[in-house]
């Protein structure tokens, strides 16, 4: 077990209805870490996220936030307990302004909303002068930032990102990755699922490779990205490592 463990998924079996997708998954994230989950399409990467959030049926196994069991807790309560989550698509309220989006992220926040806004606009300077624009009018990269800022509005203990760079151009992809690093440097542990495995591993402290809903490899970011088998796996499907 890691020291200073924030999130742990232990021996998890889960899926949709009767179809089991995840078989015996183990994942841990320590404080201050960026951890990536990579793997080919259909490996169940996003499913892990949904299981943590409480959107799926969990057949066996447990999920801990710090020392607290959150297995089978409702999504809205998981969020309140300190898991910030950014879904892959439809992750902003398009008809609301940027600032309203942030406000929605802080639903249970009792006070200090203004300070939180300032904090977010410092972390995401691009959003500062767009704060009264509808989120639906922003570019894909900016939307992604709104979504991340929204998820950080409650004092999250960990941030879950589901394919944060999916569908973005290389330029934006780079920007998002450096933003993720910046968020992490401010002290936020991050667990992300990524298709762009090489870049993701480069900024990650550790990574997990999932194949067919099971753990295949585990290692440091650098270690995994130089692992020949991992490289072969991705060369086969995307050729990006």
């Amino acid at each position: 077990m890691l020291r200073n463990r924030i999130l742990a998924v232990e021996n998890l079996f889960a899926g949709y209805g009767e179809t089991e997708i995840l078989h015996d998954i183990n994942i841990e994230v320590a404080g201050h870490e960026i951890v990536s989950i990579i793997g080919p399409n259909g490996a169940g990467k996003s499913t892990v996220m949904k299981a943590i959030l409480g959107i799926l049926n969990i057949n066996r196994g447990s999920i801990f936030l710090e020392s607290k069991q959150i297995t089978g807790v409702k999504p809205s309560d998981v969020v309140k307990l300190g898991v910030g989550y950014v879904p892959q698509t439809d992750n902003v309220f398009v008809s609301l302004t940027v600032q309203e989006n942030l406000e929605m992220g802080a639903w249970t926040l009792r006070s200090g909303l203004e300070n939180k806004f300032d904090e977010m606009y410092t972390l995401f300077p691009d959003l500062s002068d767009k704060r009264f624009q509808a989120a639906g009018q922003l570019s894909g990269g900016q939307r992604q930032m709104v979504a991340m800022a929204k998820a950080l509005m409650l004092d999250a203990k960990i941030l879950l990102l589901d394919e944060p760079t999916a569908g973005l151009s290389p330029k934006f992809r780079h920007e998002i990755f450096s933003t993720i690093q910046r968020i992490n440097e401010s002290g936020m542990p991050i667990l992300m699922v990524e298709q762009n495995a090489k870049q993701a591993l480069q900024i990650s402290h550790r990574g997990y490779v999932l194949v067919d809903g099971s753990n295949r490899h585990t290692g440091t970011g650098i270690g995994l990205s130089s692992d020949p088998e991992v490289a072969r796996m991705f060369l086969g499907s995307r050729g990006s490592v």
């Binding site: 959030l53 809205s76 309220f93």
Partner: peptide, 17 residues
């Protein structure tokens, strides 16, 4: 407005639906 816009996102944003 948020729930009307995207109810699933509202749930995972911690909004008390």
């Amino acid at each position: 407005r948020a729930v009307s816009d995207n109810p699933d996102l509202a749930k995972v944003s911690g909004i008390d639906v």
